[in-house]
């Protein structure tokens, strides 16, 4: 039981992190970044390259991978969003879908990482801890801990710093932010870089639990998207509860019903929520933008 709760919360934490990445960009530009999951994959593959392939120390692999993903976030904004910033949000969404497809297809090439699955080591111990009759993976606790730390850091950043408040202002009313002398372009870059950074961390802490493959990001992205909808799109509380709820649901569903239907639970619960409470646990009703 404890074992299931911990591993459910760990998976849920990953979904919550990716859902937060969705949220950052959604709030700022009004479009969903469907490449968010593939950015998780990219972060994990950078880690694999440095640690598993080149054999460099794990901490260095973490550091370099995060650094590269910061650069990626910048390039992503310049190439996939900035030229389209005055276009309808649907155009931006399609652009992010394209980036996702391109990333997946580049990653699977033989000169890149190819179709194999890769091992990625853990920063903590890989010896399971026994508590009573439960067996707990230290990596699961690590995932939960890192996620909590990131959430707290992000909260403090947005609420307590000048830059955080400028970002909030920009998200709430871009034109008014411009009139107040806020450099809106710079705020957009920061938003994309932050969500790319979240994806990098999600990829790196998830990698030791799964094997790293070109499709891992896509799966995580779909789950996180479901989590966003279940929790309520557009709210931070929704992203977190939706993620944790989905993680627990999957693990318990797999344990007590059937592991073959693990992925089906997510879609099923999304359908139920869409019928019963389309705004999600915490969300406001989504209205078509004029």
């Amino acid at each position: 039981m404890l074992q299931l709760v911990i591993s459910g919360l760990a998976m849920g934490s990953i979904y919550a992190l990716v859902a937060l990445g969705f949220l950052l960009i959604y709030v700022a530009v009004g479009a969903i970044n469907f490449a968010q999951g593939d950015m998780v994959m990219l972060g994990a593959f950078f880690g694999v390259t440095f640690a598993t392939m080149l054999g460099w120390p794990l901490w260095l692999a973490y550091f370099l991978s995060m650094l590269l993903m910061l650069v990626f976030g910048y390039v992503f904004e310049r190439v996939a969003y900035y030229p389209l910033r005055d276009k309808p949000f649907l155009t931006v969404i399609i652009s992010t879908i394209a980036v996702g497809i391109i990333l997946r297809n580049l990653a699977i090439q033989d000169w890149a990482w190819g179709p194999e699955e890769f091992f990625f080591g853990t920063l903590v111990s890989d010896v399971p801890i026994e508590v009573g009759d439960a067996v707990i993976l230290p990596q699961h606790l690590f995932i939960i801990g890192i996620t909590v730390a990131l959430l707290v850091a992000q909260y403090l950043f947005f609420e307590k710093t000048f830059l955080g408040r400028k970002l909030q202002a920009t998200a709430q009313d871009q034109e008014a932010a411009r009139l107040m002398g806020i450099k809106v372009e710079r705020m957009m870059i920061i938003t994309f870089v932050m969500s790319s950074f979240l994806a990098a961390i999600a990829g790196l802490i998830l990698a030791p639990v799964l094997f790293v493959s070109t499709n891992m990001g896509f799966h995580v992205g779909v789950k996180a998207f479901v989590a966003s909808i279940v929790g309520g799109f557009g709210s931070m509380a929704g992203a977190i509860t939706g993620g944790l709820f989905l993680g627990l649901l999957e693990v318990f569903g797999a344990a007590y019903i059937s592991s073959a239907y693990k992925d089906a639970f997510a879609v099923l619960i999304m359908l139920v929520v869409l019928f019963v409470r389309p705004q999600g646990f915490f969300g406001e009703k989504i209205q078509e933008k004029v």
Partner: peptide, 23 residues
């Protein structure tokens, strides 16, 4: 066009963006 999700004082603070360095 005030920033609805910021407090009154945060609205005022944010508008110093053009001249104010952090702190």
């Amino acid at each position: 066009r005030v920033f609805p999700g910021l407090t009154v004082e945060e609205n005022l603070e944010v508008a110093t963006a053009s001249w104010r360095r952090r702190g």
